[in-house]
């Protein structure tokens, strides 16, 4: 059976095509605001082409993500935590919780008995837009997100930025630049603050288990943040290879039943 999942985020749209429990194609494209419905069509077409399939070959398409309502060709829609949970269980059957850090939201999903979800904790409003503010920082620092993520080492305690709000953090980072702090160190401080904010959400209610927590979403690809988060939270996150496609994968799995 062939099914597909489309995850429409605020920043990117991700598509996954699944054949008998195997991912056969992935695709991603920028959402582009008003162009979101068109972008979804585009990534859908490209991903189908990559898998050498036509739309009629796919039995069912399920959409998830903030803009799931924009996917006209989806047969069904599923809320994000459910898709996350499904993907985590599929990838790591022993997992007990999944943390999704995307462009806009941070979600901590604690898995329950059977297929169920025990609890979902989301970021408070002031911690929204983590991924978005990272991207804005990367423009200011003149570094790609990839270059930022490769910065190694702990940030210096005397070089810190606000850890409560991404906008204040930007302001502090700009202040550091104007004092000639090397941009690599500024980048580390920014990413450390992001880790503090994510950890603060982890501390919210149920602390995720040490060895059975899956980390997904675009920000999970940032090694520097993940290292800082591991150090702060003491959780050894399991990060799947295509972590940013977890939502789409979960949706595709839901489509398969």
């Amino acid at each position: 059976m062939i099914t597909a999942g489309i995850d429409v985020g605020i920043e990117n749209i991700k598509a996954v095509i699944l054949k008998d429990g195997e991912v056969i194609a992935r695709g991603t494209v920028r959402s582009g605001g008003a162009k979101r419905a068109m972008s979804a069509e585009k990534v859908w077409k490209d991903t189908l082409a990559a898998a050498r399939l036509s739309p009629s070959d796919v039995e069912k398409v399920v959409a998830t993500g903030q803009g799931k309502g924009d996917v006209s060709f989806a047969g069904d829609r599923v809320v994000e935590p459910v898709a996350d949970a499904r993907a985590a269980r599929f990838l790591y059957p022993a997992s007990t919780s999944v943390v999704d850090v995307g462009a806009d939201q941070v979600r901590v999903v604690t898995l329950g008995k059977g297929d169920g979800i025990a609890e979902v904790v989301m970021n408070q409003k002031c911690a929204a837009g983590l991924g978005i503010s990272l991207k804005s920082m990367s423009r200011t620092l003149g570094m790609t997100l990839d270059e930022m993520s490769r910065q190694a080492g702990n940030s210096r305690s005397d070089i810190a930025v606000n850890d409560g709000c991404g906008v204040f953090a930007e302001m502090d980072a700009l202040g550091l630049l104007s004092r000639n702090v090397p941009r690599e160190e500024v980048a580390l401080a920014v990413m450390e603050a992001v880790a503090v904010r994510i950890n603060s959400i982890l501390n919210d209610k149920v602390k995720p288990a040490k060895d059975t927590t899956v980390l997904v979403g675009g920000v999970s690809k940032n090694k520097a943040i993940v290292d800082a988060l591991k150090r702060r939270s003491g959780v050894n996150f399991i990060i799947p290879e295509y972590a940013e496609y977890a939502g789409a994968l979960g949706a595709a799995l839901m489509a398969a039943g």
């Binding site: 605020i10 605001g33 008003a34 991207k135 906008v167 930007e170 302001m171």
Partner: peptide
């Protein structure tokens, strides 16, 4: 303080909307 960075915000918005 909370109204900091409005100009930067517009850059972010242009990027998100692709306008």
């Amino acid at each position: 303080k909370c109204a900091t960075g409005m100009g930067r915000g517009i850059e972010v918005m242009a990027d998100l909307l692709q306008v």
